[in-house]
Simulated assay, not measured.
Amino acid sequence: MRALVAALFLLALSACSTNTRQLSIETNPSGATFYEEGTGATHQAPITLYYSLPETSREADGCFTIRPYVIYWTSGAAVQGANRLCGDNLQWAMRYDRPVGHPNLAADLRVAQYQQAQAQFLAQQQQLAAAETLAAIAGTAVQGLANNQTAQVSAPQIMQERRVRCSSRVVFSTIYTDCN
């Protein structure tokens, strides 16, 4: 009986297996624009995309076909992306290099440098928000000790009292972060 229950559980578990496939795209230099044909969706690289691709959509050669896409750099350089995902992977990683010899490499390098600076700024803002949250937790605990109160402080309670919230949004090639 236990074997039957275990077999049914495994069968149910396999029926719920994920159909989500992940495609990570990097460009060299970074900051190129990913453009998905047919939808008009654009994203700045590096980017990770998620596709719901059930096994029934796998072709005879073992590959999935996704919408065609193009990678564009600021200079106008472009490469056609691979729109076939082959193998039993759930994750694929693609790296696209800017075509050698295309004019105005300096413009593409400036975009990459700007993107890197924005990513560093965002990371610093997130670290600052985390440090302020820890300081709020520590400050509440110290205040309780100074007033001869029991030092049993619940972190979720403190987090509700003093929560730093940051949200970021991307507008073209600029990341805007607001914290309050």
Rank of each mutant, 00 (worst) to 15 (best):
G81P: 12
C166H: 07
Y69K: 06
Q115P: 01
R163Q: 15
Q80Y: 15
A130S: 08
L53F: 05
S154Y: 06
D97H: 13
A151P: 03
Q125F: 00
R67P: 07
N148H: 11
E161V: 09
G81E: 08
A6C: 13
A77E: 09
T27A: 02
Y69S: 03
V79N: 11
S24D: 02
Q152R: 08
G76C: 13
N147V: 00
R162F: 13
A129V: 03
T20W: 07
A7N: 09
P103F: 09
R84N: 07
F9T: 03
R169T: 09
A45T: 11
A41M: 08
Y72D: 14
A82Q: 15
A45P: 01
Q80T: 12
A106Q: 13
A12V: 02
T140M: 12
G139K: 14
S52R: 11
E55F: 09
T150D: 15
L11K: 02
R67M: 06
Q143R: 10
E26V: 07
T39G: 04
Q157I: 06
S30T: 05
Q160P: 00
D61A: 09
R84M: 11
N148T: 00
G144E: 06
R21W: 01
T20Y: 13
D88G: 13
I47F: 06
L109V: 07
D178T: 12
Y69Q: 04
S154W: 07
V111Y: 02
H43P: 01
R98W: 05
A45H: 01
A77M: 01
Y176W: 14
G81Q: 11
Y176P: 00
N104K: 10
S57E: 15
E37D: 13
M1S: 10
A41R: 14
I66C: 12
R98C: 05
R165K: 12
A146G: 01
P68V: 04
D108G: 03
V111R: 05
S17Y: 12
R165D: 06
F64I: 04
F64W: 15
F34V: 02
L8S: 15
D108N: 11
Y176H: 10
C166G: 08
G38H: 02
Q143M: 13
Q152A: 14
A32D: 05
A119F: 04
L85D: 03
T140L: 10
L90Q: 04
E26N: 15
N104R: 12
L122P: 04
Q143F: 08
G139C: 01
R165H: 08
L23M: 07
T20K: 11
N89R: 10
R165M: 08
A3D: 15
R2N: 13
P156F: 04
S173Q: 12
R67H: 12
C86R: 03
R165S: 13
Y51V: 01
Q143G: 06
S24Q: 07
C16N: 09
V5R: 15
Q22I: 02
N19A: 05
G144Q: 11
A93M: 09
Q116V: 14
F121S: 14
